Simulated assay, not measured.
Amino acid sequence: MKKAVLASAVFAAMVSGSALAAEVYNADGTSLKIGGRAEFRGDFIGDKGKEIEGSMKNSSRFRINVGGETQITDGLTGFGFYEAEQGVTSSGDNDATTSIKQRYMYAGIGTQFGDFSFGKQDTAGVQISQMSDDGQIWTGAQKTFIAAGDEQVNNTIAYSNVFADAFSLKASVIASDEKNENGYGISGIYATPFGLDIGLGYAQNDFRVVDDSVEPEVVVDTGSENQFIGGLSYSIASLTVGGTYTQGTYKYDNFSNVDFSGVELSGTYKFDNGFRIMAAYQKQELKDTGSSEKLVLNDFAELTGQYHFNKSLRTYLSYKFDNRSKEDAGLDKVEDTVRLGVRYDF
C-alpha cells in the first residue's frame, strides 16, 4: 500500500472517486472538494458473455462527488462525503436516463485514535479486494460475495486507522433495520519497506431469503454467511502486481450449505510515454455441499492497453476472454468482450 493511500478516511474516499478532486473552498479550518469523472465505455461483440445483437452496447457513466473536512481542535476533525453516478440508455435514439445511483453518503469524526464514519460506505474488507482491482471490465468482484464484505453498503458504521505509517486497520458493522441482516468485518494491510503489501480480512453477516413474488413478502429461509479474504500486492519501479483469494460459506438454516471461492490476479506496467499495459485474471465458483454440483460465476482473462494524455484524460482498449461454459453462463453461446473507453477525470 502506497503511503499516499494511508490517509484519513475522507481523503482516501476522495482519491477513490477522483485523484484530481479540486478544492473549491478553504476558510476558517473548513475545506470542500469536488471531483468526478465522465467516461465513455463502448462494448463490442459481447456483454457479460451475451452476444450484442447490434453494433455496440453503451455502458458509459458520469460520477460526481463532494467531500468536506472541518478542523474542530488539534486532534479532532469532522468530515462528510457524497458520490452519485448516472448511466446512459444504450440505444440508437435520444432516449434519456433520468435515474441517478447513490454510491456513497456518510459523515464522520476524525480523532487521534482513528476515524469513525457513519452511513453508506465501504465495509472493512474492501481495502483487501482493491489490491487486485486493476482491470477495466469486471475485476474487483471479490468483495461481492457477502454484504459485510462489500462496498457502498447502507447502515454501515466504520473505523479506520493507520499505525506507524505501515499498518492500515479497518473495522465495520452493518446495523440493519431488518431482523437477521446485521454483520461485521475487520481487515488489515501491512506495507513492508520493500514494496510488498500483505492484507487479510474476515467478514460475517446474517441473511434472509425472501420470496418477493407475493404480497406481503415471505421469508423462505434464514442463515449466516462468512468470508475470509487475503491479498498481496507488490510495486517496483514501473511494475505493479496484485492478487487476492477469498473463500467462505452460505450457511442456510433449512437448505444445504453453499461454499464459495474466488481468485483474482492483476498487473500493470507503466511506460514513460504515458502508455500502460494491464492484465487481469479472475475465477469464482460456488459449490453445493449437499451435492457435487459446482457453478462457475466468473472465469476470464483481460488484457488492456491504456494511454494517458495527461492526468485528466485517458483512453483504453480492453479485450476480455470469457472462459465460462455455456452451461455456467446460461447462454447458447459465450462471447468475449471488446471495450473501447475514453475517461476524463476532474
Rank of each mutant, 00 (worst) to 15 (best):
V162K: 04
G78F: 15
F255Y: 08
D253M: 05
A175I: 12
T139I: 00
E151W: 03
S31G: 06
A279L: 05
R276E: 13
G54W: 02
T70L: 10
T246R: 04
T249G: 04
A329P: 09
Y269K: 02
V258W: 00
K101W: 09
F300Y: 15
G46K: 14
N155Q: 03
R208N: 14
E83F: 10
K333Y: 04
K326L: 01
F167P: 06
A203P: 10
I189H: 06
S90A: 13
E178M: 15
A175L: 14
A22F: 12
G54D: 10
E217W: 05
G274A: 03
S318L: 06
R61N: 05
N58E: 03
Y82M: 15
L303N: 06
E302Y: 01
S91F: 12
G87A: 00
Y202N: 09
I229K: 10
S233C: 06
R37K: 04
K320E: 00
S238I: 00
N205S: 14
S99M: 00
F11E: 14
M1D: 10
Q284N: 14
D212H: 09
V338T: 10
S129P: 02
F275H: 04
S261W: 14
G108S: 00
F163Y: 13
A147P: 05
D212M: 06
A21G: 05
F145W: 15
S292L: 03
N310R: 01
K320F: 02
E85N: 11
V241D: 08
G114L: 13
A13R: 13
K270E: 00
N58G: 04
E181M: 15
Y250D: 15
V263S: 02
S318V: 03
Q136W: 08
S266R: 10
L340W: 13
I72Y: 07
G242L: 03
